[in-house]
Design a protein around this nucleic acid. Structure first.
Lengths: 86, 86
DNA sequence: GTGTTTTGTTGTAAATTTACAACACCCAAG
DNA sequence: CTTGGGTGTTGTAAATTTACAACAAAACAC
């Protein structure tokens, strides 16, 4: 099964928290270059690594990784706010 | 990074829909034995495979896979219903 | 009973992910 | 200018996941 490319918001969430790749790598327990590969989307993380990264940001996996290109968070937020006011 | 074991509800959702492993395997495009390995939790799926399986069931990844042992769905449902009536 | 489908098990090979090292580049601080 | 942090790139080796085949056991229909 040739894996599809999976998109992610790692850089967004990482920068928001002023973490270096090394910092994030330490938090999840991988090499800092592995974070680089993931941010450049050169390969997909394992499911466990995806869970670890999502846990660091306190988010569900689907909010950090997606099978389709990531919408800007502002849009996600707007859509969510709209739905609340129905 | 030695991966943690990841738990899943594949058998629950698969049986609910009366799918054989072969059926599910065809739907996601892997060998039927791969589904067997996952159900027995002998190894973790790749992130892409996890997404494919979750998509078949129309659920977010975190509802099908988890880092911690799976609660029975009845509990999940009960907790969710409770939260609605607050 | 026989026959068929589903599942479990074992083994090997391929593909993908992760680790690690080495080096270059950029850029902000001093 | 120069030092250092953060990042990108290349290459190799290890670990994990997937495919596939072959066969046995279990469940089910006929």
């Amino acid at each position: 099964m040739k894996p599809r490319k999976i998109y992610n918001r790692i850089p967004v969430f990482r920068n928001e928290r002023n973490l270096s790749r090394q910092d994030l790598a330490d938090l999840v327990g991988v090499n800092y270059q592995t974070i680089g590969y993931l941010e450049r989307e050169e390969y997909n993380p394992s499911l466990d690594l995806a869970f670890r990264i999502a846990e660091v940001f306190g988010l569900p996996v689907d909010m950090v990784f997606s099978t389709k290109p990531m919408k800007p968070l502002s849009e996600v937020l707007r859509d969510h706010l709209e739905k609340e006011g129905d």
